[in-house]
């Protein structure tokens, strides 16, 4: 017992050390988050002004100008992506939750999960081959489609998970009123899972809004306002990439400011999404 008592002191110490180590690791893991937000704020804010948000880029060497076209471009591309991916994703999610406990359902579920792991640059190449080469031009549409491919599996799986949370009794209550099943699902089940599905969609949008690689191969960039969705288009992530990798300090500063705008959009969206569900956890899928 004496040996055990002596050992116990060491065991207590080990436990305390492990606790301290885990706490320190968590703090360490958050350093990049804090550092990134700090630098984006301190370097981005000075370059941020009304002109930056409302004007077109000026040629290299001239000061002033902004990234208004890229802000609009990001909204256009992400909007297109949502327009395409949300109906497909929600529909497929309904299938998985309502009819999907069979082999096809398992397969689709599995493929959707695997699809979220396909590198976005590969998706970019896929859209380049199928859309850009066919249309013989880079376009906002191609960019939107690339982001849609990334969004579909995310929206599908979130929709499924949210619909599964709706109790069967609610469906039965609807059927007992004599409503056909499709009316029950679209009218009652979807409605009561609405908050969670919107959250999932917002998180998916927040994720693709920062995607850069596929846009480099699909929508490219543009120094002017785009002329329709079949025209190439500037987007915030691509602007950040090209400004960050130039030697011009003015453009570097603009990259920080553009990051601030992008980060504000993305973080607001993902924090809002969390509020939407009232604290209920939605798995962040990437």
């Amino acid at each position: 017992m004496n040996a055990e008592a002596r050992r116990l002191r060491w065991r207590r110490l080990a436990s305390a050390l492990a606790l301290a180590g885990a706490a320190a690791s968590t703090a360490l893991a958050l350093v990049p988050l804090i550092s990134t937000v700090y630098f984006v704020l301190t370097r981005g804010l000075p370059a941020l002004n009304l002109a930056f948000l409302t004007q077109l880029p000026r040629p290299v060497g001239e000061t002033g100008g902004g990234v208004a076209n890229a802000i609009v471009g990001s909204l256009v591309v992400v909007g297109l992506a949502s327009l395409v991916s949300v109906p497909i994703g929600v529909g497929a999610g309904i299938y998985l939750s309502e009819f999907g406990r069979n082999r096809l359902g398992s397969l689709v579920r599995f493929v959707a999960d695997v699809l979220t792991g396909v590198p976005s640059i590969v998706v970019g190449i896929f859209i380049y081959i199928t859309v850009v080469l066919t249309m013989k031009r880079f376009s906002a549409l191609a960019g939107g489609l690339a982001l849609a491919v990334i969004m579909v599996p995310v929206v599908t799986r979130t929709t499924e998970e949210m619909l599964r949370l709706v109790p069967v009794t609610l469906r039965e209550a609807g059927l007992a009123l004599g409503a056909p099943y499709w009316r029950v699902v679209t009218g009652i089940v979807l409605r009561s899972a609405r908050g969670g599905i919107i959250t999932g969609i917002m998180l998916a949008i927040a994720r693709v809004a920062g995607e850069t690689a596929p846009l480099l191969l699909t929508s490219l960039s543009n120094n002017f306002w785009h002329r329709g969705i079949t025209d190439q288009i500037a987007t915030l992530p691509v602007i950040i990439f090209s400004y960050a990798t130039t030697p011009y300090e003015d453009l570097n500063a603009k990259a920080w400011a553009a990051s601030l705008v992008l980060l504000a959009m993305v973080l607001t969206m993902s924090l809002l999404a969390r509020l939407f569900t009232g604290g209920r956890r939605v798995v962040w899928r990437r």
Binding site: V40, A206, G210, I240, A244, L262, L263, V266, L267, W284
Partner: peptide, 26 residues
Amino acid sequence: RGPAGVAVELLAAIPSVVYGLWGIFV
């Protein structure tokens, strides 16, 4: 637990290109 969990998840919310910018200059 809640706040720390959200903070870790926000790490995943920062776009790759912003990390790249931070990488180049910081």
